[in-house]
Design a binder for these strands. Structure first.
Lengths: 163, 163
DNA sequence: TAAAATTAGTTGCAAATGAAACTATGTCAA
DNA sequence: TTGACATAGTTTCATTTGCAACTAATTTTA
């Protein structure tokens, strides 16, 4: 990836130049990959079914008959609560889910996919998994496991960076 | 990562459920990691130097003594030309770069860091590389190379997915 | 060479985002 | 109890984003 030490280039004279190449900078490469994969996958539910990324994710978390509140979706999806709130509103407008105020805690709103929402989910899952597979095509099972583990180790490191 | 075949869960009765877990869905994991790393790195130039991500990248591409047009920056950074145009405007407002219309092709505007811009670049590069290193901490040289290669293979696959 | 097509870069606009403030409800401590 | 704090979720607002349309300059074509 990149040499830990800060490399410098010494010029013919005395000036020292920082040797920085954006294309070998991990955070940049990661974002480029994320954009590419995200674009490849989201095309299905965006153009063919008119769902936003956050709506798809909300649908995915509610999955099969899952009954949960908005804040549980926030927790499971790592999305912002505003984003989740609006995704729910959008899904409700299209009758993909129904809301019911929790009787025991009237601040909570419990969510559940409707039959229509479940059908959308059932249609979408195989398509989305197919595209995921196309992104990972050519990677062996072992390579996928390695990637998974490397990514998780880096993610854990970021917890430390951010105190 | 995820089994290529679409797995289904057979329930006690006869219903078949899609077995979908967002947390083991590669595009989702990738976005979570990107957010985490991006947050960890951008904190330096955002909060300490008031640069946006696109401004930092523009600075990084221009680097030491680089002289190029906006469209070359677009090409080297994979950013949208609108984003680059606005990043340039912001950097120019703070006297980090100067623009000069190309005499041979007066549509082109040639860009170059000022002394002040170069100082910012020189300050930033070691800090940013340090944070990159913290994200990758614990990964051996070989593991970094593996990660790099796996990421590039996936990125190349997305070209195919998008035709 | 005049019209058409291309290229560089900017601006307008509409959608997505998320921090902060807000409403409503619930819990805890004195 | 009741006043202070906590939690669930929504709304407001300011910022970021990027497509599309634009201006300006250049190149190609007929």
């Amino acid at each position: 990836m990149n040499n830990p030490t800060v490399r410098k280039k010494r010029m013919s004279g005395s000036k020292v130049l920082n040797d920085f190449d954006l294309n070998h900078f991990f955070p940049y490469r990661l974002r480029v990959l994320d954009r590419a994969v995200s674009e490849a996958i989201s095309s299905v539910y965006t153009s063919r079914f008119g769902l936003s990324v956050s709506q798809w994710r909300t649908l995915a978390v509610l999955g099969d008959g899952g009954v949960m509140s908005a804040s549980e979706i926030v927790q499971k999806s790592s999305m912002d609560k505003v984003v989740v709130s609006r995704a729910i509103k959008g899904l409700q407008n299209r009758d993909f889910l129904k809301r019911k105020t929790d009787i025991n805690d009237r601040r909570r709103v419990v969510l559940k996919l409707t039959a229509k929402g479940k059908r959308m989910f059932d249609n979408l899952v195989p398509l989305v998994k197919q595209l995921e597979e196309e992104c990972l095509r050519g990677l062996t099972r072992a390579e996928r496991a390695t990637l998974d583990s490397l990514m998780e180790r880096i993610r854990a490191n970021t917890d430390v960076v951010l105190q």
